[in-house]
Nucleic acid binder design. Sequence first.
DNA 1: TTCCAGGCGTATC
DNA 2: GATACGCATGGA
Length: 281
Amino acid sequence: MDYIVTEHGIKLFQNDFDLDETLDCGQAFRWERAESKYKCTYKGFFLDRPLEISFDGEGFIFHNVSEEEFLSVWADYFDLSTDYGLLKKQFSGDDTLKKACGFAGGIRLLKQDAWECLCSFIISQNNNIPRIKGIISRLCGHYGHFPSAAELASETSDSLSYLRSGFRAKYIVDAAQKAASGEVNLNSISGMDIEDARKALMTIKGVGPKVAECVLLFGMHRTEAFPVDVWIKRVMEQYYPQGIPDFVRGNEGIAQQYLFHYIRNLEKQPEKGNTEENVTK
DNA sequence: TTCCAGGCGTATC
DNA sequence: GATACGCATGGA
């Protein structure tokens, strides 16, 4: 790890890392881009620990962070011990993945908290990213932090109406009650065989295959987890009718992140000739 | 107005 | 086990 300690905090020199691509790609929902004198700044949280992080054109500044905190918290959260350059090199044996890595090669997989991740992806179902962020923001605003399972276990869908989370409120309550009672033990699930882990997570109401996979990938860093949402379904149909190539095995989830970002952007800004813009009116 | 969003529960066959 | 449908909310 290449970093220096400065009077403002830590300055990290890191390849394969882009703040927009990592913090605003739909894997985490509590990071906001902030105005600053730097090229790019984000403010957000891991658990109850706040962070302001900037890119100044050459390095990543972890504002007012001690070396001890950087090494024990943030280096792990940003998965700095994984060589994403090497992974991308491996992925580039496949044409589509090569393009995806070239498009958003600065994505890193955040090692998030399992409980926050479970709540967040329950909220994400049949929803869009701005609204997911809004609901989570109202939730944290209400408690002053991201509420624990124990805190949410005594809520009801009525008492959570201020979230405007719709039909998902009852699912949040069920997840909180099961996690708080120990009926669902996120800590032990994280170490289970992945099939057993999926089943255990799916005993929660509102947790199906997609949400379970997201919790495994983003909240338990199980990089072999492969969430299939509407976007990835399109990728699979269009590019991988035979399935994801074998050499990706073990890192399907990381490949998924590159593909997700790639396909979403392709459809947002379609290349010329690939649209229906010019059909007869 | 209608459609859609990082899906899932339920009913029905 | 497969498939169809409703679901809360809000932005486009």
